[in-house]
């Protein structure tokens, strides 16, 4: 089994961070992982993304041209990556910022108001964790328990954020598990 996900959004939305959390969790579970960031010359407001591959066997290409899943936090990312997804691929859309859907009908799309949920739960900056939660709710590339552990470890030095980050992650996870897409 190999899962491949592209996480994409504006620079600053925290896509690299949730990609790393997924990679840490994969390592924690003894899996093979690669985390590859986009590092092109970007302007302010530009799009940043990373590709995370988690698998049971050594990973060939860390670069994925047609991924099995995409987590998109802004509209340019949806427009760029939705067309590249594999058939029956997973698409997690931040509906707080993206009014449109992909026009593909062969995807498993899930819409979630990540920014609104994060703000309601007390930390506007953890919208990325709502998105990660929704992705793990759709496809357990790693278990949600391991992600919670990875959050605790990553925010070791900022313990005041651990609880709210775990909470926002779990909110996304449970909404996706329950199939409550914001359609």
């Amino acid at each position: 089994m190999q899962t491949e996900v592209i996480m994409s959004g504006f620079g600053g939305q925290g896509l690299m961070m949730i990609g790393k959390l997924l990679a840490y969790a994969g390592l924690e579970e003894g899996k093979e992982v690669t985390w590859l960031p986009s590092y092109g010359p970007e302007m302010r407001g530009g799009t940043a993304n990373c590709t995370v591959v988690v698998g049971d066997r050594p990973i060939g290409s860390p670069l994925i041209s047609s991924p099995k899943a995409a987590v998109v936090m802004n509209q340019p990312s949806l427009e760029k990556f939705a067309p590249t997804l594999k058939k029956n691929g997973i698409l997690v859309i931040n509906s707080s910022m993206i009014p449109i859907n992909s026009d593909r009908d062969d995807l498993r799309s899930f819409r979630i108001k990540a920014n609104d949920i994060a703000a309601e739960l007390g930390n506007r900056r953890s919208a990325n964790l709502v998105m990660l939660g929704a992705y793990i709710g759709m496809e357990e590339a790693v278990t949600h328990e391991t992600i919670l552990k990875a959050i605790e470890k990553t925010f070791e030095k900022k313990p005041q954020f651990v609880e709210v980050n775990c909470k926002t992650f779990m909110e996304g996870y449970e909404l996706a598990k329950a199939g409550k897409s914001d359609d």
Binding site: K20, A23, L27, E32, V33, T34, W35, L36, P37, Y39, P62, L63
Partner: peptide
Amino acid sequence: DGMIGQMMEP
């Protein structure tokens, strides 16, 4: 190449 430098792996 740049990927070796920028990629994270265990």
